[in-house]
Amino acid sequence: MMIRFLCNGKAVEVETPPMARLLDVLREDLRLTGSKEGCGEGECGACTVRIDGMTVMSCLVPVYQVDGTKVQTIEGLADDVVHPVQAAMLAHGGAQCGICTPGLCMSAAALLESDPKPSREAVRVALAGNLCRCTGYQKVIDAVAGSLVEDR
């Protein structure tokens, strides 16, 4: 089945079985390997991407469901400059081994769009679907709660 969608702002077409996982299409067909597979069952969040702005576990999305949508992956989180979340994560030491980092950034970016100055509690809720084993979350939460996306 031919699936067409906007991936990081670019129109893409992929010929694939409709029930293929979005994660596999991103990683294997489109070679966007920033989305990671940590569990394959929607627990770890390393594969988090956004569909029409909403974060999803891309390992749990059959690719036909993104036909006609806008998909954003970590590779498309920032256009030219870095996204404030990425800058804050770098400054605060929010990334260690980095395998959960793309997913965390996607969840954090979605949070900051609806809540530009989130409380630490709101950050915890927003990131609860992204397991990290390196940081204890402390510096991730510092980064996201301190990102202060500028009001536009």
Partner: peptide, 23 residues
């Protein structure tokens, strides 16, 4: 001092290549 980690930018932008990313 705490300069940003060297591998940070690649890890934060999804460019860092882990073993399963290689084909």
């Amino acid at each position: 001092t705490s300069p940003p980690r060297r591998d940070g930018p690649d890890k934060l932008t999804g460019l860092a290549l882990y073993a399963d990313d290689l084909r």
